[in-house]
């Protein structure tokens, strides 16, 4: 079967929320930073992540209300 250049994406891949993608990125980033010489301020990282997530979810909720 010939593979076409464009293909339909699975629904779940196309509909990943920004906050979900962000949370996944943060977890990966947390692990990466733990391995750096500078180390990781866990408390501050968690606070920053929570803050950004809160903002993102508020933004998404607002956008959902608008749509």
């Amino acid at each position: 079967m010939i593979k076409l250049p464009f293909s339909r994406k699975p629904t779940e891949e196309a509909s990943v929320k920004s906050s979900v993608a962000f949370a996944a990125y943060c977890e990966a980033e947390r692990e990466r930073r733990r391995d750096t010489t500078a180390g990781l301020d866990e408390q501050r990282f968690q606070a920053a992540m929570d803050l950004a997530l809160e903002r993102l979810r508020a933004y998404e909720a607002k956008e959902e209300d608008r749509s």
């Binding site: 920004s18 993608a21 962000f22 990125y25 943060c26 980033e29 501050r44 990282f45 606070a47 920053a48 992540m49 803050l51 950004a52 903002r55 993102l56």
Partner: peptide
């Protein structure tokens, strides 16, 4: 500020990653 800078950095990093 440090917390927000880190949050800003994470958001930008995530945006770059996306």
């Amino acid at each position: 500020i440090a917390t927000r800078r880190l949050a800003h950095e994470l958001l930008e990093g995530a945006a770059r990653e996306m």
